[in-house]
């Protein structure tokens, strides 16, 4: 799991000990962060190879770092040195703090695959700003042919008083992106969506999905019954649980419930149409009154 990568400062001998393992155990990233990073990469300056920036968020009680926001920080990079616009970073951080004081500095991001040489210097800078920052790398170049987003923490390796190297240790990253679920992934996946779905269209698509799922289960159950597919007890139990989770009502009481609900809704629709009529009448009366 942990793939330690030594920095450019010197390949570590065998005498390396991570100084602390109490730092953050895992990280969670929201979609808006990925979007920000991608957008800033698309908008990077001409000669720049990569973009780097600050991650904001909070540390959850269980030690998970929840990354909720990010902004890019201009930097320049040459063969062996990295210059970060620290003033810019501070300005932007102050601005973000004004809006949401709960989002604090938790680390930094960089595009590119894995940790590169200059990273130690930047990481050192961020370590001065916050205790044990995380480092997020987003492979915008798809170097390995896949979208890889990785999070690291760093620990100092030293021998006696001598600082030898910094070790970047990968930590598990949760990419569930709960905020994006609200928007619907269809909208975020394609490059162009012509129209936002309204109430009923959304409902329709949800229902279609539900139908498709029910059909799939039917098919699976039929297949198992006819011995085309090897039965899996786990799936079977799950289906049984799902079916039994539906409350069993007598037809009479169900009908009553159903009709009550329908009546309620009809009453609401009626009320809203009567309101509309009322508005229309009021408008007409107002205009009539003006003619007087």
């Amino acid at each position: 799991m942990a793939a330690p990568e030594t920095s450019a400062r010197g390949a570590g001998p065998a005498l390396l000990f991570p100084s602390s393992s109490s730092s953050s155990s895992s990280a969670r990233v929201e979609a808006v962060v990925v979007f920000t990073i991608c957008d800033s990469f698309v908008r990077r300056p001409d000669q720049a190879e990569r973009v780097i920036g600050t991650l904001l968020g909070s540390v959850l009680p269980d030690g998970t770092v929840h990354v909720r926001n990010a902004y890019v920080v201009p930097h320049s990079e040459s063969a062996d040195q990295v210059a970060l616009d620290i003033e810019y970073h501070h300005n932007m951080y102050a601005s973000h703090q004004k809006v949401n004081p709960k989002e604090v500095l938790v680390g930094w991001f960089s595009t590119g695959f894995g940790v590169s040489g200059g990273s130690t210097l930047i990481h050192e800078f961020y370590s001065r700003e916050v205790q044990s920052p995380i480092h997020l790398t987003v492979d915008t170049g798809f170097t390995m042919g896949e979208a890889s987003i990785k999070a690291y923490v760093s620990s100092n390796l030293s021998l006696g008083d001598r600082h030898l190297a910094a070790q970047f240790q990968e930590i598990p990253l949760d990419l569930k992106m709960l905020d994006a679920e609200k928007v619907g992934f269809e909208m975020l996946k394609s490059t162009m969506v012509e129209k936002l779905p309204n109430d009923l269209e959304g409902m329709e698509s949800s229902m279609q999905k539900l139908y498709a799922l029910i059909d799939e289960i039917y098919k699976y159950v039929d297949d198992v019954v006819e011995a085309r597919v090897a039965p899996d007890n786990k799936i079977g139990r799950f289906i049984a649980d799902t079916v039994s989770s539906m409350p069993k009502l007598s037809p009479a009481s169900f009908d009553r419930l159903f009709n009550d609900k329908i009546q309620d809704n009809l009453a609401l629709v009626y009320l809203s149409s009567i309101t509309r009529t009322q508005i229309a009448v009021a408008e007409k009366l107002n205009t009539a009154a003006q003619v007087l």
Binding site: C38, A147, L175, F185, K189, V193, E194, K195, L196
Partner: peptide, 18 residues
């Protein structure tokens, strides 16, 4: 009416990650 657009890069990431 609102249209939503995404850069190809973002779209690739989202397809891959989700």
């Amino acid at each position: 009416p609102i249209k939503v657009s995404n850069s190809a890069l973002v779209s690739a990431f989202m397809k891959e990650l989700e």
